[in-house]
Design a protein around this nucleic acid. Structure first.
Lengths: 226, 226
DNA sequence: AACATCATTCGATGATAGTCGAAGTATGCG
DNA sequence: CGCATACTTCGACTATCATCGAATGATGTT
């Protein structure tokens, strides 16, 4: 009668609002404690604990005990990919919520999404890449053009090294705050790393917000207008 | 308090076993009637109707009325991608079910998964492609090597034409029956089309089973041993 | 040792949602 | 027109599960 892996078992884990919010928070890549996730989920500590037990049991998150803290994180990139896919469908079919996005303007401007740059800055970068034909955009993937390869090399990203990695180079992530696409995948992550290395920006503690320095902001603008 | 697109709204739609089974059935790409889907879902007609209304409302399926039949199909490739992603996670974390796969041996050998070849034959093809370095395998994507491009050209697939399409060329789909990967994406679909065109195999009516002809079986074997 | 913090378990409550039988609507056929 | 088929809607039942307060366990601090 039934077949295949329990699609519904996994999906129903994400199907609860509290758990979905927790998982979204973990998309930043950071490991969070149960209390923090309770806040993110909008539920009390006991409830959160129960949810986390289920997520852990279901293999969606892994937990690392460190002293009296228990840090939860996504179990793997497969889980992150799945969440992105669900998010993509949700964004494409759901103009339901009138709310235009996160009320926090800093968060709206730039934040990490799993491990790459999202928000207005992320979208701006992506628009430049596609507009200048540095990448070719497909449904949920993208390919780097030769010119794009050179562009990234000049920016200081070793594309060849990334390609030796198992992770897909280009990937497109649909941004839930602005309903626009931005660059994910190994290249997206590398680009963000490079910006950190150049001191253009740094990550705010205990938050997904990426705070650009004045210099970084200027350099970034120059980069995507070149 | 809550943010982002309703991840949970979409996920909970897939989170019900009956709905998940229906969606799985629709992964074959075929449009099915409400009665057929009731069977697939293992529920009564009224219940199925209610589920389908929800899926439709949620934007996961689209419906086409044709006479007194109503044909349901997945709303788009994004939905199929999402289901594959969820399926991937389910397979990777869920050694839960002892059942090794579909009991139907024909189905186990070869079947369509959305629109590409799955089952033992699909896995065999994929193994050959990776083993002979015709494609380079990453986490959930793959890239076609120059040699692979030539190989597909010889097989009769116009790769350049596919690349002009918006759909990602190479994609890896984790097979739930054998827990192995096979080729999806535009290239996977084109490969299957080509096999149909060559009369190597044909699709069985009202089923996901792909039935190889004796000649097709021999040619296929030769193809992946070359 | 006593205390504070972080987290999980237990028990009770309440709401949501899946289920099906029966009746209603729509389409096709003779 | 009348009957059959395909599907949906309605109504009532049931079960599952999210939620939180209180208590317990675990760890680190004073």
């Amino acid at each position: 009668m039934k077949e295949g892996p329990d699609l519904s078992r996994i999906a129903s884990l994400v199907g609860d609002p509290a758990r979905a919010n927790m998982l979204s928070a973990l998309m930043s890549g950071a490991a969070l404690t149960a209390s923090e996730l309770a806040l993110e989920g909008g539920v009390g500590l006991p409830t959160a604990s129960s949810h986390l037990a289920k997520l852990s049991e279901g293999g969606l998150v892994k937990v690392a005990s460190q002293g009296r803290h228990r840090y939860y994180a996504l179990a793997g990139s497969e889980v992150a990919t799945m969440l992105e896919a669900i998010s993509g469908v949700a964004a494409s079919v759901g103009p339901k919520r009138a709310r235009p996005g996160p009320r926090d303007s800093a968060m709206r401007e730039a934040r990490v999404c799993y491990d790459h740059l999202a928000g207005d800055k992320g979208v701006a970068l992506f628009d430049h890449l596609t507009g200048s034909k540095l990448i070719k955009h497909a449904a949920q993937d993208a390919v780097l053009t030769p010119r794009g390869r050179a562009w990234f090399a000049e920016f200081g990203v070793d594309v060849s090294a990334l390609e030796r990695n198992r992770r897909p180079l280009c990937r497109v992530c649909l941004d839930w705050s602005v309903r626009r696409s931005h660059l994910a995948g190994a290249l997206g992550a590398a680009a963000l790393d490079r910006m950190f290395a150049l001191n253009w920006a740094r990550r705010e503690a205990d938050s997904r917000v990426v705070r650009f320095t004045p210099k970084g902001r200027a350099e970034f603008d120059r980069l995507i207008r070149a």
